[in-house]
Design a binder for these strands. Structure first.
Lengths: 325, 325
DNA sequence: TTGAAAGCGCTAACAG
DNA sequence: CTGTTAGCGCTTTCAA
């Protein structure tokens, strides 16, 4: 080598993982600087049989909800010395499976996944290879996996209560796909609130959509075009709320006077919309950060059983739910 | 090997890059399936001296503007057979440099970067190693790099025109940091419109903020607390617009009656805000997709000089600019 | 403390 | 068409 030492010594000097004579260390570092040498991470990984990259598998990068989550994960990863490779499955189970395969080929150190479907997502190929997995936002059918979610049921219950509280009797609910645990749990919370209020559950007031704007729009249309228009709508995510608001506007139905509305996800623009939206806030950054921290622990050898972290939600009551009685 | 053939044959059979007897290929594939073997991507890269990962360096993943951009890049990368490693610099030049170093260590195939600073961003370490780079959103001082931007000047000019058109004489401008080409170009467009309208440029009506909500808020406060309140504001990105709207609300200044407003970035929620926002729409997905396509071309050997793609913007005139005369 | 040598898992070159 | 061999760039025994 340029510094007149063996490659082994260079490795030791630069990685700092072993004792090297200070004088030699300096000479090596100077030479490395000089040649602007940067070690080959791939070769390092191959030899050491580890990787410094995580996989992050999301169903919709464009959803602002995930945006903050991504930031939390990225910061957590960085803090633990990892970088993150981003996989957008676009809600497609097959694409999800393909990405998992890809991540295995990359011999990724660990995976954080917001599964498309709680039922169909199969992380067994990862687990078989001892690649730690953390499920986030949505749970996995196969337990035994560290999981970070929010208190969906509680949040939904609070939002529904708020709507009932302002005198609504017929409250519609637009929720997500039946195989997403978030959709089911939020629907559960809605039912719970109805039950507590002594109001019968009417399945015809519920629509399962796709957590996207278009789906929310169509579901809202169906509910609003019923013979008996609901007094209020509980919409279980931000994009579907946008769609629902469009449907309401189309029909000239004022919020909250004609139809009250409460939703999940409290983003930076919710207070700019008029009326200001009543919404359940999720700790998005925390969700990501917690997932990252759990993953980091697993990677550094923690062996306990699958952990479940449930983060609290907060209902922000604003104008969209305040139906004059 | 389990299929009774050499490792070389396994490699050939699985990669499909060379001719192998069909019968053997099937046997190998079956065995691979059986053992659920997946090749080690790192070793492959090491040997073939290529990588199948791109680096994506952004200054703010949380900004919804970048969200769609990310999707465009991710899809483009996927189409070209690459995955994307996400680096969030959080507007920090040093962190940006660190990430570039990391990407070099990973022997990344190419980089798409939205530089924090057009001036301070140094991609020379990448170029020195022949790693293709595409600049996106903001230009780099050092030309010679493929670049995808939008017509910032044109968009800003149109937005300012719209404000002037409704009778505003004193139009304030809140733009981004002076070392971001987007901030400068949008300010340019604003000045151009003023000049065309024969209105003198007043530097005291301009504020350089940070493209974030807080900065927009503070800049708006300064402009609105002048002796002579501006008739209108042109705000050069979405987050600062949110901040400016807050400042306006704080002061009870109605939009557009007291102060008209036009902004850059047209996101899915801009039509839900009341008044609906007049905004310059950027082709976000296209921006990312084009960057990805340029990068893919470079990686597959294209050698021409640095290319500049300028995508068009569209002004959507809505209520926030419609000041009653 | 340092150097020599082996080997991580793969593919390309070269024979056969 | 297939096997043998070497080597990508690094880290890690094992000796010295």
């Amino acid at each position: 080598m340029a510094a007149g030492v063996s490659t082994a010594t260079v490795s030791r000097a630069l990685s700092g993982r072993r004792r090297v004579a200070p004088e030699i260390r300096e000479r090596v570092q100077a030479a490395a600087q000089q040649l602007d040498y940067l070690p080959n991470g791939g070769a390092k990984n191959l030899r050491r049989r580890v990787s410094s990259v995580w996989g992050l598998v999301l169903s919709d990068v464009e959803n602002s909800f995930f945006t903050s989550v991504v930031r939390g994960i990225e910061e957590g990863a960085r803090a633990a010395g990892y970088s993150v490779i981003l996989c957008n499955t676009d809600g497609d189970v097959r694409r999800e499976a393909e990405y998992l395969e890809l991540l295995i080929e990359e011999r990724i150190a660990g995976v954080v996944i917001a599964p498309v479907s709680s039922e169909l997502c199969d992380v067994s190929p990862l687990r078989k290879r001892n690649i730690p997995v953390v499920a986030m936002d949505r749970q996995l059918r196969t337990g035994e996996v560290d999981t970070v979610v929010v208190d969906n049921r509680g949040g939904a219950r609070a939002a529904t209560w708020e709507l009932l509280d302002t005198g609504a009797l017929r409250v519609g609910c637009i929720t997500g796909p039946e195989d997403a645990s978030t959709a089911v749990e939020r629907l559960d919370g809605y039912r719970l609130a109805l039950a507590e209020a002594g109001i019968g559950f009417d399945p015809d007031l519920v629509r399962f959509a796709d957590f996207r704007q278009r789906g929310g729009y169509e579901a809202a249309c169906q509910l609003l075009d019923r013979r008996s228009v609901p007094h209020a709508l509980f919409v279980t995510n931000n994009l579907m709320t946008v769609g629902a608001l469009e449907a309401l506007a189309d029909r000239g139905l004022a919020v909250p006077d004609a139809v009250a509305l409460a939703s999940f996800d409290d983003l930076y623009w919710t207070t700019l919309v008029r009326p200001r939206l009543t919404a359940v806030a999720q700790p998005m950054y925390e969700l990501g950060r917690t997932a990252a921290d759990l993953l980091a622990e697993r990677i550094s050898g923690y062996e306990g059983p699958g952990r479940l972290r449930t983060l609290d939600t907060v209902l922000h009551v604003r104008d969209s739910s305040r139906r004059p009685m």
